[in-house]
Design a protein around this nucleic acid. Structure first.
Lengths: 125, 125
DNA sequence: GCAAATTAATGATTTATTCAAG
DNA sequence: CTTGAATAAATCATTAATTTGC
């Protein structure tokens, strides 16, 4: 499905180096161990590791194969986003009770709302 | 398209105001359309709509279901607050992930990340 | 069994929001 | 109001699975 994109030529030359050779792919190809470890960390609650964390994780994962900090960073980004996406698809549940305090609503009849009245100043419209 | 969950339609038909019987369950339950529209307005820059704006928005949103001015007002209040909270948490949690996202990635292989490392010492070996 | 073609998964880039600071 | 910072969302591009035909 690579229609006429032509916009991006990609400067990626695959000089990822470091790899033990293998297929010398252009993009990082995580090993089972690496994925397992990453998923474990994610499961532990790590969603957006700090730079330091990324460094540590990268170092750890290097034992199982070539990897860089950016790979770790991207992995968490993508994983979180895709997990979210999948969850969203499951949004079949009925009500979407949102964030609203019933506190005010209990007032029911709602008297004249002066709250937002004294603000005739600039409007963002 | 036509992703209507059709969950709406009832919910708040009439007896919202002037009740007095049930203590709870009478709070505004925004529909997808309403939320979408509100978020759109928020995205357009509206943070604290004036009374007139609230009125207009309310009128517009009434097409999709019962809603009152206070709901609109509170929605913006809560939405803004929530966004701020989230942003703050993020800021406090992560430091310079940005480092990976903008600069390094464009430079391919991750060089030594001293940017966010005030570490004046350099131990190696 | 294997290879080409197609589809699905996912790594890597780019873009758009959002709040804080000046 | 403009700029800076930092994601998250959307998108592109490549790899792995899977399918299909021989």
């Amino acid at each position: 499905m690579a229609d006429d994109k032509s916009t991006s030529s990609i400067v990626f030359d695959g000089s990822v180096t470091g790899g033990g050779g293998s297929t010398g792919g252009c993009r990082w190809n995580p090993t089972k161990e690496q994925i397992s470890l990453l998923e474990n960390l994610y499961s532990q609650g790590i969603r957006t590791p700090s730079a330091e964390q990324i460094q540590e994780i990268t170092t750890e994962l290097k034992v199982y194969g070539h990897i860089e900090g950016k790979n770790v960073f991207y992995w968490f980004q993508n994983h979180k986003a895709r997990q979210r996406q999948r969850q969203k698809q499951e949004q079949n549940h009925s009500n979407n009770i949102f964030y609203y305090n019933q506190f005010l609503l209990h007032h029911k009849s709602l008297p004249p709302p002066p709250l937002f009245a004294p603000a005739p100043r600039n409007n963002n419209g």
